[in-house]
Structure formats: structure tokens, C-alpha cells
Simulated assay, not measured.
Amino acid sequence: MFGIQLFARNLENERLLTYGSFVSAGPDDIFNWQFGTPRTYGVRLLVDY
């Protein structure tokens, strides 16, 4: 048996903020940001014996 799957994530290609932090370290201030994954898409081929 064979199968094909199509998939897509983040179709609108939005850069969603998933993490943010601020650290006050004396005279230096540190900002950290992490964004989600960009648009991804693909095809999966399935084989079942």
C-alpha cells in the first residue's frame, strides 16, 4: 500500500514571537528574542508492506 501526504505549516509566514526576556546586568542591558519557524511545506511518501 502506498500513500502521499502534503503538509504545510505557518502558511501566512508570520514571525511569531515565542520567547522574550530582559536582563539588567549592571551598565549593560540584555534583550533576548526568539521567533517561531518560517513557512515550511513538503510531501511525504508512505510505503506500507
Rank of each mutant, 00 (worst) to 15 (best):
Arg39Cys: 05
Phe35Asp: 08
Gly20His: 12
Phe31Leu: 14
Glu14Ile: 00
Arg9Pro: 11
Tyr19Glu: 12
Asn10Val: 02
Phe31Asn: 12
Ser21Lys: 06
Thr37Met: 08
Glu14Leu: 06
Gln34Ser: 12
Thr40Arg: 10
Trp33His: 09
Val43Cys: 04
Ile4Arg: 03
Arg9Trp: 01
Gly20Trp: 10
Ala25Leu: 01
Ile4Cys: 09
Met1Trp: 03
Asn13Pro: 02
Leu46Met: 01
Gln5Gly: 03
Asn32Glu: 15
Asn32Leu: 14
Leu46Ala: 06
Asn10Arg: 03
Val23Met: 08
Glu12Cys: 04
Gly20Leu: 02
Asp48Ile: 13
Thr18Phe: 07
Asn32Gln: 15
Asp28His: 14
Val43Ala: 06
Ala25Trp: 03
Val43Tyr: 07
Thr37Arg: 03
Leu16Ile: 12
Gly42Lys: 05
Thr37Asp: 12
Ala8His: 11
Ala25Met: 05
Leu45His: 08
Arg15Ile: 06
Gly3Ala: 14
Leu6Glu: 11
Leu11His: 07
Phe22Thr: 12
Leu6Asn: 06
Arg9Ala: 10
Ile30Met: 03
Leu46Tyr: 04
Asn32Ile: 14
Asp48Gly: 13
Trp33Ala: 10
Asn13Asp: 14
Tyr19Asn: 03
Gln34Asn: 07
Leu6Ala: 13
Tyr49Ile: 09
Arg39Pro: 02
Thr40Pro: 02
Thr18Ser: 01
Ile30Tyr: 09
Thr18Asp: 00
Arg39Gln: 13
Thr40His: 12
Thr37Glu: 13
Leu16Gly: 07
Arg44Pro: 05
Tyr41Asn: 12
Val43Ile: 15
Ser24Thr: 09
Tyr19Arg: 01
Leu6Ser: 04
Asp29Met: 10
Asp29Trp: 09
Leu11Cys: 03
Asp48Leu: 15
Asp48Trp: 03
Gly20Ile: 08
Leu11Val: 02
Ser24Tyr: 08
Ser21Thr: 14
Met1Pro: 05
Phe7Ile: 04
Leu6Pro: 00
Leu16Lys: 14
Tyr41Ala: 15
Tyr49Ala: 10
Ile4Val: 15
Asp28Phe: 13
Asp48Pro: 10
Ala25Ile: 00
Glu12Arg: 06
Gln5Ile: 07
Gly26Ile: 01
Gly36Glu: 01
Asn13Leu: 00
Tyr49Ser: 07
Arg39Ala: 08
Ala25Asn: 11
Thr37Ile: 08
Tyr19Met: 00
Gly20Gln: 15
Ile4Phe: 12
Leu11Gln: 11
Leu45Asp: 00
Ser21Ile: 11
Glu14Gln: 14
Pro27Lys: 02
Met1Phe: 09
Ala25Phe: 08
Leu6Tyr: 11
Gln34Pro: 01
Gly36Arg: 02
Gly20Met: 13
Gln34Phe: 01
Gly36Trp: 00
Asp29Ile: 00
Phe22Tyr: 15
Asn10Cys: 09
Ile4Asn: 08
Gly3Gln: 11
Phe7Gln: 07
Ser21Tyr: 12
Gly3Cys: 11
Arg9His: 11
Gln5Cys: 09
Tyr41Ser: 13
Ser21Met: 13
Asp28Pro: 05
Tyr19Lys: 06
Thr40Ser: 13
Gly42Ser: 08
Val47Asp: 07
Gly36Ile: 08
Val47Arg: 01
Val43Asp: 06
Asn13Gly: 01
Asn13Cys: 07
Gln5Val: 00
Val43Arg: 08
Val43Pro: 02
Leu6Asp: 03
Ala8Met: 15
Trp33Pro: 04
Gly36Leu: 11
Phe2Thr: 10
Ile30Ser: 05
Phe35Thr: 08
Phe35Val: 06
Arg15Leu: 09
Asn13Trp: 05
